[in-house]
Each structure stands twice: as C-alpha cells, then as structure tokens.
Amino acid sequence: MVTQAGFGNHKWAMAVDVDKCTGCQACVLACQVENNIPLNTQDRFERNRSISWIRVERYWEGEFPDIKARFIPIMCQHCENAPCEPVCPVFATYHNAEGMNVQVYNRCVGTRYCANGCPYIVRFFNYWEPVWPESLRNHLNPDVTIRSRGIMEKCSFCVHRVRRGVRKAASESRPLEDGEIQTACQEACPTSALNFGDINDPNSRVSQMKKDDRYYTLMPQLGTSPNVFYLAKVDEDREIALTGAESEGGDGH
C-alpha cells in the first residue's frame, strides 16, 4: 500500500555545544553503525577516501606549554540555501519540507557536482562497491539503504529515525515530544554535546539553545543558512588575551 507522507510542521535542526565535545569519536562510530557506512580500511585512509558522515576535527591553538586542542564535530549542515542542491542535474539532492537536505540515492548519477559545491566537505562519493564479509552483514541496519558504487552519500539527520518517530506519534494520536527522536550520533554522545530537535517548536531544546549567547554557524559569510548550529567553546584564558589586546590599544571587544 502506498501511503501519503506526513511532512508535518517540523523543521529539524542540530545544536552542537563545542564546549562539551571531548573528541571521543562515539558519534563517528555510532553514525557509521546506524547508517551502514562501509569500513574505512587503511587503503581508504591513505587515499583520503574514507567516508564519515560526521567527523570530529581537531585544531591546535597557541604554543607549548599553553597550547590548546579544540574539537568540533562537523556533519552535513542541512543548509536552507544549500550550494549542493541547485547544481544537481537530476534532483538527487533537494531540500525537503522539514528543513533537511535530502539525498535520493536512486536518482543520483554520480556527477559529484554537489560535493564540489559543498563548502563544508561533508559529502562523500562511493568510489567502490561497499563490501562486508558475509558474517558482518548480520549487523547491517535494515532501516537504511546500502549505497552502491558511483553515488553520493552524506548525513541524513537519521531521516529513518525521524520518520519512525513521526509515524509512531501519529499512530498514537499524540504530538511528538521534544527529545523523542534522537539521531544516532546524539544518542551516543556521552557529554550531550549533540542535540537534535524541532526548531519550529519554541520550547524544544534546540530552540532554547539557538537563543544562547554562544550561538554561531559555520561560514556565515556564505549565506548558506545552516540548520546545524554551534555554541562556542568557553575559555577563561581568552579573557586574559583580550584584556591584553585592549591594554595595548587593540580592538578588544
């Protein structure tokens, strides 16, 4: 039976509190397990062809002994004005009614224009057919399509979990509760740095986090208007640095 898709009045967003991220990689593997991402073998690492829908980047700041390591998880930013969408000649990537940047695997013809257009480098091309030893196929997630060679893939905001959650709430004739739907990365994240929810719900956690003074987005100058936003890292040493800049007649803040 073909059913009408219920798009509802949701707009999904992810809030990342950088101050809580420890770089533990729990989100990276949880995503890989959930979404049947092929094994990133040594060969793929060496060719820079590993696939990771969410990655944790580590940046250095300062010099020893006052050096700092900063972590930031980066996934598809699900931009409102996504540069990847208009360049797709076959509409394999498009913006859905719920704020998600969606990839339709069976439309994709592998031009890779979208990956070239994405400033966040979060789209991945399947250069090879994904292969698992037969016994490891036992743990593949039946909810998620295995992508074949020659097509693009990327973070889906765990759309299958979203669909399941929406359907479940509808079947029980009740509104969806905030936090009821969790993406795989958020579910794993031990420090709760990752938060997913409906930004159209003013009471949702992500809506509240968006009001935080530490709110920022990646590459705002590009006007992509991402649905993933970040809360800045807090560092007491910065205060000292800025005070120093002011005393030297710098701009400060």
Partner: peptide, 20 residues
C-alpha cells in the same frame, strides 16, 4: 571553525574581536 568565547562574552562579540 572553533569559535572561542571568554566567560560572559557573546559569540557575536567574539566574532567581532576576531575579525579585528
């Protein structure tokens, strides 16, 4: 991409200071 703020500083203020 990792914006750092001092305690009490807003992201907007930090971005302005960084730009300067």
């Amino acid at each position: 991409p990792v914006l750092v703020v001092a305690p009490g500083e807003t992201a907007h203020e930090a971005e302005a200071a960084n730009e300067a």
